[in-house]
């Protein structure tokens, strides 16, 4: 489902984020990506949904070589990937409900479907009562859960999450992880970038370790 072939990423001024990364993540896998701050975790995720392109090597996600992907095909490619961003990236001038429904609109779902589906995912993250609030009216943890709900709403083939439990208390973090497992059990490939070692220990899943752009792997 996700393949990195000799991937290196060098940013401007020579900052090397990833170095010679080779890894494959199969369909339906649940994988953690961990490592210290600045290790290249976010870059790794960005390369998968083509926010960034590799400097060397190639990235294949959902059978698409991201370098060969034409600009016009990027939206269709991204529609199959749900992303929970570290900074949430919620649309500030839209309500929680509108943030979720926007994705469904983009995918062309009929109006009759939008409301039920939006409330379904909001219920999954326990925030159905905040549907009419704006992101600025929510706490960091609540915004994070909305970002998760948005990523889940169209049942993507791949789910990428960048520190999805960073702003959540331990109980809520476990609930969210259970949610990710549930999504994973339906066949969605889940890749979670996190610092939370306790969580990784508890979940006992395949873990990729990034350190200064070099990848190591621990299989549990």
């Amino acid at each position: 489902m996700i393949h990195f072939f000799h991937v290196s990423k060098v940013y401007e001024k020579g900052n090397r984020a990833l170095h010679e990364v080779n890894v494959s993540i199969g369909k339906g896998e649940f994988v953690f990506l961990t490592g210290p701050s600045g290790a290249g975790k976010t870059t790794f995720l960005k390369l998968i949904f083509r926010e960034e392109l590799p400097s060397y090597g190639r990235v294949v996600a959902n059978n698409q070589n991201t370098i060969a992907l034409g600009k016009r095909r990027i939206p269709d490619f991204r529609k199959k990937i749900g992303v929970v961003f570290q900074d949430f990236k919620l649309l500030e001038n839209r309500t929680v409900f509108e943030n979720i429904v926007f994705i469904l609109n983009v995918l062309g779902y009929p109006a009759s479907f939008l409301r039920d589906r939006a409330f379904y995912v909001l219920k999954l993250v326990g925030l159905q009562h905040r549907y009419d609030d704006y992101p600025r009216q929510l706490s960091g943890g609540e915004q994070q859960r909305i970002a998760i709900a948005r990523a889940l709403v169209n049942e993507p083939l791949i789910l990428l999450a960048d520190e999805p439990t960073g702003n959540l208390d331990p109980d809520l973090s476990l609930e969210i992880m259970a949610l990710f497992e549930k999504i994973n059990s339906r066949g969605t490939t889940v890749l979670i970038a996190t610092h939370d070692r306790e969580m990784i220990k508890q979940m006992r899943k395949r873990t990729l370790y990034l350190d200064h752009g070099h990848l190591q792997e621990h299989r549990k």
Binding site: P75, F77, I103
Partner: peptide, 16 residues
Amino acid sequence: QNDIAIMQLVGADMKF
């Protein structure tokens, strides 16, 4: 610009 970038990252077509 920020909203547009977010829309693109979640897979919105250019026409949208």
